[in-house]
Simulated assay, not measured.
Amino acid sequence: MLEGLHPNNPTHVARIVTDEARARRIADLLGESFDPAETAVAAFEREDGTPKPPWLVEVYFRTEPNRPAVTDLIRLAAGTDVDVAYDAFGEKDWVAASLEGLAPVVAGRFTIHGSHDRARVKRNSIGIEIEAALAFGTGHHGTTRGCLLALDDLLKRRRPRRPLDIGTGTGVLAIAAARALHRRVLASDIDPQAIATARNNIRFNRAGAYVAAIVARGTTAQRMQREKPYDLVFANILLGPLARLAAPMGKLLAPGATVILSGLLHAHANAALAAYRAQGLSLVKRYRLDEWTTLVLQRGGGKPRRSPRPAAR
C-alpha cells in the first residue's frame, strides 16, 4: 500500500471528456490546485475508438470532494461549461475477498498457498506460503497474480540482478523474486503493519538472507536511494500513487530496467501507461485478469522525454 490508500477505503473520481487542449489545461490547473498527497490528475487520449472529443481527464480524491467547487474549477480551466461525472470505487474488503475459496494459486512457476495446502505444491514449482492477514497480497487477487505471471515470463528471457518491490503488502512479490533469482531484493511499504506481516512471511519462506523490508513513503528512503539503480521494479498499488511515482521511480531505474505495474482497473491502464512513457518506458505486455490490468514496461537506454505534469489520481 502507498500514500495512505488503504484497500478498504473508497477512492472518489471525477471524469471529464473533452478535447486535448482543454484536457491539458484542466490537468495543469487541478494539479497545481490540490495537495498531491490527497489528489491526483490523469489526462490522456483514449484508445477505445471513441469519436471526438477523444481525451479523458480523471481526477482522483482520497476523500469525497466538494463537488460544486471542483466542478467550478474544472469549468474555469476549460473555459466552457463541460460535463463532470463523479464516481467512487474500491469499497471492498480485499482481504476478505482473497479468502474466498482460498486454494493454491498457480502463476507460472510460482504456487501461492496457505499452510493447509503445503502438500499440494508440485516439486517443480516455487511454493510461497502466505496466510491472509491485515496486509494485501495473498496471490489470489488478479493484481498479484498478474505480477507473478509477468515475473515468470520475464525470467524466461533474463535474470534481473537488483529488484525493488514498492508497496509490498504481504511481501509475496519480493519473496517470489528472491526465491527465483537468489538475489537481494528491497521491499517497501508505507504501512508499518504491512511491513511486519511481510517480514514474518519473508522469514517463514526462508528468504531472510535475500529480502529486506522497510517502511518507506514513495522513493525517498535513504536505503532505496543508496541501492539504486534497479533493473526490476514491482509496484502493485493504485493508479493515483502509481502516476505520482512515475517521475521519481524513473530516477531509480537502470537502462533496460523492467517495471511491472498493477492495481489498475482496465479503464485506468492507459493513464498509468502515459505517465511512465513520459519517463522513457515502453509497453512490453499487458495482462488482463478479472477486472484488473498488469502492465510490463521496459526502460530504454535514452533519457526520458519532457512531458506535461503527469495526470494521476
Rank of each mutant, 00 (worst) to 15 (best):
L99F: 03
E47K: 10
L173D: 04
A77T: 11
R162V: 04
G101F: 06
T144G: 07
L76D: 13
G142N: 08
E100A: 15
P163R: 08
I175D: 08
R159D: 03
G114Q: 10
W55A: 00
A77M: 12
H141I: 08
D87E: 15
T168M: 02
L164R: 06
R109A: 10
G139H: 14
L186N: 08
H141T: 10
A97F: 07
R183G: 00
D72V: 06
R62K: 15
E64A: 14
A119I: 01
V57I: 02
A135F: 03
P104R: 11
E58M: 10
H141V: 09
I130S: 09
T111S: 14
G167R: 02
V57R: 03
R109C: 05
V41T: 08
G142S: 14
F61L: 10
V105M: 15
L164H: 05
L173E: 05
P53E: 00
A42Q: 05
D72W: 02
L134Y: 01
K92L: 15
D93F: 11
L173A: 04
A135G: 04
G101A: 09
A77L: 12
T50S: 15
L56K: 03
I74H: 08
H182M: 01
E129F: 02
E100H: 09
L56W: 04
R161N: 01
I166F: 06
A132S: 13
I166W: 03
R118C: 02
R120V: 00
I128Q: 12
T71Y: 03
Y60N: 07
R75W: 03
D83V: 14
P160D: 14
R145C: 09
A43N: 05
P104E: 10
I112P: 00
L164A: 06
K156R: 15
L99D: 10
A78G: 02
R162M: 10
R118I: 01
D83Q: 13
A177P: 05
L102A: 15
R120Y: 00
P65M: 03
V185D: 02
D48E: 04
I166G: 01
E45V: 02
S125F: 14
T39D: 01
D93K: 11
N66D: 15
A180E: 09
T170L: 04
